[in-house]
């Protein structure tokens, strides 16, 4: 299990970590003290996953190009 802070994890990392935590807890061979820590970490990971899932906002922009085809900026794209 990585020691990366949960808040810095990508959705996928948090997902994998959560799965690992659940599996370990379900195996039931974790010492009690550690299992409490694991549970807390699991809850944190779940919250992270949910946050990332809730963050699913759509934003569509088209890149604007100059005469030479180099990007100059973006304009929002609506109604597609």
């Amino acid at each position: 299990m990585s020691d990366k802070p949960v808040a810095e994890m990508s959705f996928e990392e948090a997902l994998q970590a959560l799965e690992g935590v659940v599996n370990r807890l379900e195996r039931g061979d974790v010492p009690l003290e550690e299992s409490i820590g694991l549970y807390e970490r699991g809850a944190e990971l779940k919250a992270r996953c949910e946050t990332k899932l809730k963050e699913a906002e759509e934003k569509v922009a088209a890149i604007t190009l100059d005469a030479n085809g180099n990007p100059t900026g973006t304009t929002p794209v609506e109604g597609m």
Binding site: V22, L25, G42, K46
Partner: peptide, 16 residues
Amino acid sequence: LLSWTDEQGARLTHAA
């Protein structure tokens, strides 16, 4: 993914 996460949360609580 949301339902998977919920499921994991439930398993987590249950396991603990």
